[in-house]
């Protein structure tokens, strides 16, 4: 009888231990391609924020992250395509310029600011920008990883490819630049004077590669604690 009693109590204890310690643990996931980075250049875990840039380990570049804080990175600002030589100056809408905005304004301001410790911000190539296209993960969202790239609108985003032949209905503007549309996930050539959105990109130099950035990832435990703070 005593052995049976002890055995059953032991089984009860095991059950209690099982209930206590078998609960699933929330582990911060790691994205295969993207990592969040704050403005000072430190990378953070996927559940932390806010972040200013996204490290793209596939292309070895940093992407600008748009905001809704009326700074130069606000996702609502639009720009005409202009590279100081070609294009159309000041035909977009923003608050941070005395006049209206073009792509060179955003590039100049961002490089002056040194976003994420980078000073080589530029317009993405069509291939670079097209690589961000992803089917919407939720209804009504843009064709992009919305959890890493918030405030991206379902509209046209400029690429660096200029002197492109325009479709017939735009022939009076001679040539234009290529844009990627995050509503349909397709490319289109638009006149330089069009007001389109912009997401900038910065090539990582040898002194600042993605592998080096990865080594700066705050370890998971620290980031869990940080997320709670």
């Amino acid at each position: 009888m005593k052995i049976r009693l002890l055995t059953s109590l032991l089984m009860l204890l095991l059950l209690i231990f099982y209930c206590r310690f078998s609960l699933p643990v929330h582990v911060t996931p790691v994205h295969a391609r993207f990592t969040k980075m704050i403005n000072t250049g430190e990378v953070i875990s996927s559940w932390q924020g806010p972040w200013s840039c996204v490290v793209d380990s596939s292309l070895n570049v940093l992407w600008e992250v748009k905001t809704d804080n009326e700074s130069i990175h606000d996702g609502y600002w639009t720009y005409s395509w202009f590279d100081e030589i070609q294009g159309k100056e000041n035909f977009g809408d923003c608050y941070f310029e005395a006049q209206r905005c073009d792509t060179s304004d955003l590039i100049r301001h961002t490089n002056t600011q040194g976003l994420c410790n980078q000073h080589n911000w530029r317009l993405p190539t069509p291939d670079e920008l097209q690589s961000l296209i992803k089917s919407p993960q939720r209804p009504g969202q843009a064709h992009i990883n919305n959890d890493y790239f918030p405030f991206i609108h379902k509209g046209d985003y400029w690429t660096s490819a200029n002197q492109q032949q325009l479709p017939q209905h735009f022939t009076q503007f001679n040539s234009g630049a290529l844009a990627v549309n995050f509503h349909a996930g397709q490319q289109a050539t638009l006149p330089y004077r069009n007001a389109a959105f912009v997401i900038l990109v910065s090539s990582l130099t040898e002194a600042n590669t993605t592998s080096q950035l990865s080594s700066r990832v705050i370890n998971e435990n620290t980031s869990q604690k940080e997320a709670r703070k």
Binding site: H31, F34, K36, W47, R138, P139, G140, N146, D147
Partner: peptide, 15 residues
């Protein structure tokens, strides 16, 4: 979505 701490399965907003 890796960047979202909350997952709501089938409960979603219309577009």
């Amino acid at each position: 979505q890796h960047g979202q701490r909350r997952y709501s399965a089938g409960y979603q907003a219309d577009g």
